[in-house]
């Protein structure tokens, strides 16, 4: 089990094979789930979303509500898909969670935000980030912070990626594309 701590909630993002406890979990991904895992997730009151991750079935669980159908990213040049969006007021800021799937050999738009900070938690797969501060490679369970005014673009190679983005100071207009 790998863990990444979600800053807003004292909860965690986990990639699990054996779900013992979901008490502290906000997002969980389970590869090749069996019936007992499905039952435990349901008992915990979690919502679920199922997709094929490469050739493996993947169950994603969260107390938040998933989209009924996977959505194409809003930015035309991005090849990402969205599974869930949840936003909440936290102290003086608005925070959001985006669950994003990127197929193999895909990329997002190259962009930056002036105020938003984004924390990427990689639930499953491999993910690369090209940023104006350098290139990063994440494996499942790892996380990375992209600060305001840092240009970034995500891409995958052979493996797809499933990523939770925790976004601080959510502002839909704060999105600037870079050629």
């Amino acid at each position: 089990m790998t863990l990444s701590h979600l800053f807003t909630s004292n909860k965690e993002v986990v990639t699990v094979q054996n779900v013992d406890s979901l008490d502290k979990v906000l997002f969980a991904s389970i590869l090749s789930p069996d019936q007992s895992v499905r039952e435990r997730v349901a008992r915990a009151g979690f919502n679920t979303f199922e997709l094929s991750f490469g050739e493996t079935p993947l169950l994603v669980a969260s107390p938040f509500t998933f989209y009924k159908k996977i959505k194409k990213a809003f930015t035309p040049t991005s090849q990402a898909y969205y599974l869930l969006w949840h936003e909440q007021e936290k102290e003086e800021d608005k925070w959001g969670f985006l669950l994003q799937y990127l197929p193999p050999h895909a990329l997002t738009s190259k962009h930056f935000h002036k105020e938003q900070t984004e924390i990427f938690y990689l639930l499953e797969g491999e993910l690369s980030l090209e940023t104006s501060e350098g290139n990063i490679h994440l494996s499942s369970g790892e996380a990375y912070i992209v600060n305001p005014n840092v240009t970034h673009q995500l891409f995958t190679r052979e493996s797809p990626s499933l990523t939770v983005l925790e976004i601080q100071k959510v502002n839909y207009k704060d999105h600037y594309l870079v050629e």
């Binding site: 990444s4 701590h5 800053f7 924390i119 501060e133 996380a143 990375y144 912070i145 600060n147």
Partner: peptide, 13 residues
């Protein structure tokens, strides 16, 4: 020791 993402960001920024 437990929050390397935050500290790495601090060291980098």
């Amino acid at each position: 020791l437990g929050n390397r993402v935050i500290w790495n960001d601090l060291l980098r920024s």
